[in-house]
């Protein structure tokens, strides 16, 4: 390089200084605008996530001054607990039924609403309305309807000479009941998302298929359904995440009972952490739930997304 002459060196340093100054100013502005959001995310999302791993290694009760390091003891206890297989099964069954049922029902509803039928606006509004309501309120409303003695459902079943099942006490009805209410609450939302997708499927593509002699079913399976791929993928992930974290309806309708038969992993976190107060053990269950969520999301992304974007 050699030593540059004074005449060239000065402007270059000046430009570098200006650049550095601008960068420093930009970083300042970035911190000013994005800083608050990141600060809250760090303190109330990232910090607790890492802390949750740490708590899970402790034998520690909520509010207690004494904590004992037990390594993976809490996890060992959870894996050996005879209750665990049932909690896992309940969680997976609930997720599977609400996600699959919600998507099938929502797609069917969307396909019906996509035809130019009179009054479809009303149907769309009515079916979507439950989605905006409080889970606790919806739960209360449905325990009244499911009541085996005075509930609306018992009356309707009575018309067909069917005795109402003991929804709240006899297996497998309690979990089934919560699944039904979850579907009632979510199906309109799924239909709405699918409807938005259906309306973006170009009509001339379907017309062309029809002209080529493809039947309704064939057009649907070869054209409409593949084009809905990305939306199906979005719904699969968001519905699974929300099913695994579902709390309000279970709290309102069965409170995890009877005999723990509607206790999901999420509900177990609540029971262990706050009702029993075992913060360490509860955090271990929370970590298991988190890992399960991550694994399911990653699997869905790896195996489903690849099939979604084919042309």
């Amino acid at each position: 390089m050699g030593s540059p002459t004074l005449g060239i060196a000065v402007p270059e340093t000046r430009r570098a200084t200006a650049r550095r100054k601008k960068l420093r100013r930009n970083i300042g502005i970035f911190l000013l605008l994005a800083g608050p959001n990141y600060l809250v995310l760090m303190v109330f999302t990232y910090r607790p996530m890492f802390l949750s791993f740490y708590y899970s290694l402790l034998n520690w009760n909520l509010g207690s001054q004494m904590a004992q390091f037990v390594g993976l003891g809490n996890y060992a206890e959870w894996f050996n607990d005879p209750e665990t297989p049932r909690v896992l099964l309940t969680t997976l069954l609930y997720a599977l039924c609400t996600v699959a049922g919600g998507m099938a029902g929502g797609l069917a509803l969307a396909l019906a609403l996509n035809r130019k039928l009179a009054g479809r606006g009303i149907v769309r509004t009515v079916t979507f309305a439950p989605y905006v309501l409080s889970g606790i309120a919806v739960g209360f409303l449905w325990i009244y309807i499911f009541n085996p003695n005075i509930g609306l459902l018992a009356i309707v079943l009575g018309w067909f000479d069917v005795a109402s099942p003991e929804w709240f006490t006899q297996q497998p009805w309690p979990l089934l009941m919560i699944i039904v209410v979850t579907l009632w609450k979510h199906v309109g939302y799924v239909a709405l998302i699918y409807l938005a997708g259906l309306q973006s499927v170009p009509q001339d593509l379907r017309d062309a298929a029809a002209l080529d002699g493809a039947g309704t079913l064939r057009t649907f399976s070869r054209i409409t359904l593949p084009l809905l791929g990305p939306i199906t993928f979005f719904l699969l992930i968001t519905l699974t995440l929300s099913a695994l974290q579902s709390f309000d309806l279970i709290r309102a309708m069965t409170n995890g009972g009877p005999l723990g038969s509607t206790k999901t992993l999420m509900f177990q976190v609540y029971v262990e952490g706050f009702q029993i107060g075992r913060a360490g053990y509860g955090s271990a269950v929370a970590t298991v739930l988190f890992v399960l969520l991550l694994v399911i999301t990653v699997i869905q992304m790896k195996f489903v997304e690849r099939r979604v974007h084919y042309q």
Binding site: T45, Y46, M49, L62, L289
Partner: peptide, 15 residues
């Protein structure tokens, strides 16, 4: 953070 479920954070946040 979209992948960190809010429910996982409740015990540490409560503390």
């Amino acid at each position: 953070t979209l992948l960190i479920p809010g429910q996982i954070t409740i015990i540490p946040n409560y503390v």
